[in-house]
Amino acid sequence: MAYEFNERTIKIIIDRRRCSECRTKACVKACSLYDRGILMIREGVPVLREGADAEREGTECLACEEECRLRGFNALKIEAPIAGLEEYKKAHGV
Protein backbone atom coordinates (compact mmCIF):
# COMPACT_ATOMS: atom_id res chain seq x y z
CA MET A 1 0.00 0.00 0.00
CA ALA A 2 1.50 3.29 -1.07
CA TYR A 3 1.84 6.11 1.39
CA GLU A 4 0.73 9.41 -0.08
CA PHE A 5 0.48 13.02 0.88
CA ASN A 6 0.04 16.31 -0.93
CA GLU A 7 1.99 19.49 -0.93
CA ARG A 8 0.39 22.57 -2.37
CA THR A 9 0.43 21.51 -6.04
CA ILE A 10 2.16 18.11 -6.02
CA LYS A 11 1.53 14.63 -4.69
CA ILE A 12 4.24 12.48 -3.11
CA ILE A 13 3.75 8.73 -3.35
CA ILE A 14 6.02 6.38 -1.42
CA ASP A 15 6.07 2.62 -1.95
CA ARG A 16 7.16 1.85 1.60
CA ARG A 17 7.55 -1.87 0.98
CA ARG A 18 10.94 -0.98 -0.50
CA CYS A 19 11.88 1.47 2.22
CA SER A 20 12.51 -0.98 5.03
CA GLU A 21 15.47 -2.39 3.08
CA CYS A 22 16.89 1.07 2.45
CA ARG A 23 20.01 1.86 4.44
CA THR A 24 20.49 5.45 3.31
CA LYS A 25 17.07 7.00 3.97
CA ALA A 26 18.23 9.55 1.44
CA CYS A 27 14.74 11.01 1.07
CA VAL A 28 14.64 12.21 4.66
CA LYS A 29 18.15 13.64 4.47
CA ALA A 30 17.21 15.47 1.27
CA CYS A 31 14.04 16.77 2.87
CA SER A 32 16.04 18.22 5.70
CA LEU A 33 18.63 19.80 3.39
CA TYR A 34 16.49 21.13 0.54
CA ASP A 35 13.04 21.45 2.12
CA ARG A 36 11.76 22.12 5.63
CA GLY A 37 12.27 18.64 6.96
CA ILE A 38 8.68 17.48 6.76
CA LEU A 39 9.72 13.82 6.38
CA MET A 40 11.00 11.65 9.21
CA ILE A 41 11.65 7.95 9.78
CA ARG A 42 9.27 6.01 11.98
CA GLU A 43 9.52 2.22 12.33
CA GLY A 44 12.05 2.15 9.51
CA VAL A 45 10.03 3.94 6.86
CA PRO A 46 9.51 7.60 5.88
CA VAL A 47 6.40 9.37 7.14
CA LEU A 48 5.31 12.95 7.50
CA ARG A 49 6.73 14.53 10.61
CA GLU A 50 4.14 14.63 13.38
CA GLY A 51 2.27 17.91 13.19
CA ALA A 52 3.66 18.78 9.78
CA ASP A 53 1.27 20.60 7.50
CA ALA A 54 2.71 19.47 4.17
CA GLU A 55 0.50 21.69 2.04
CA ARG A 56 1.62 24.76 3.91
CA GLU A 57 5.16 23.86 4.90
CA GLY A 58 6.29 21.83 1.90
CA THR A 59 8.37 23.81 -0.58
CA GLU A 60 7.94 21.34 -3.47
CA CYS A 61 11.70 20.96 -3.83
CA LEU A 62 11.39 17.55 -5.58
CA ALA A 63 14.70 16.51 -4.03
CA CYS A 64 13.42 13.41 -2.22
CA GLU A 65 12.45 11.69 -5.48
CA GLU A 66 15.86 12.23 -7.08
CA GLU A 67 17.80 11.26 -3.96
CA CYS A 68 15.70 8.12 -3.55
CA ARG A 69 16.36 7.19 -7.18
CA LEU A 70 20.09 7.73 -6.86
CA ARG A 71 20.78 6.49 -3.35
CA GLY A 72 17.70 4.61 -2.26
CA PHE A 73 15.40 2.06 -3.86
CA ASN A 74 13.51 4.27 -6.31
CA ALA A 75 10.49 4.01 -4.06
CA LEU A 76 9.32 7.61 -4.13
CA LYS A 77 7.47 9.26 -7.00
CA ILE A 78 6.19 12.80 -7.31
CA GLU A 79 3.27 13.81 -9.45
CA ALA A 80 3.27 17.43 -10.58
CA PRO A 81 0.48 17.64 -13.11
CA ILE A 82 0.01 20.52 -15.54
CA ALA A 83 -3.63 21.02 -16.41
CA GLY A 84 -4.25 20.50 -20.11
CA LEU A 85 -0.65 19.76 -21.14
CA GLU A 86 -1.10 16.09 -22.06
CA GLU A 87 -4.20 16.91 -24.12
CA TYR A 88 -2.27 19.69 -25.86
CA LYS A 89 0.60 17.35 -26.71
CA LYS A 90 -1.76 14.75 -28.12
CA ALA A 91 -3.58 17.33 -30.20
CA HIS A 92 -0.29 18.63 -31.62
CA GLY A 93 1.33 15.26 -32.16
CA VAL A 94 4.09 15.79 -29.63
Binding site: E7, L62, A63, A80, I82, K89, V94
Partner: peptide
Amino acid sequence: TASKVYRIVKTIFAQ
Protein backbone atom coordinates in the same frame (compact mmCIF):
# COMPACT_ATOMS: atom_id res chain seq x y z
CA THR B 1 9.95 26.27 -6.46
CA ALA B 2 11.50 23.24 -8.15
CA SER B 3 7.99 22.15 -9.10
CA LYS B 4 7.46 25.41 -10.97
CA VAL B 5 10.77 25.01 -12.81
CA TYR B 6 9.84 21.41 -13.64
CA ARG B 7 6.51 22.48 -15.11
CA ILE B 8 8.07 25.18 -17.27
CA VAL B 9 10.59 22.71 -18.70
CA LYS B 10 7.74 20.29 -19.41
CA THR B 11 5.93 23.11 -21.19
CA ILE B 12 9.01 23.90 -23.28
CA PHE B 13 9.16 20.25 -24.35
CA ALA B 14 5.50 20.34 -25.41
CA GLN B 15 6.70 22.25 -28.47
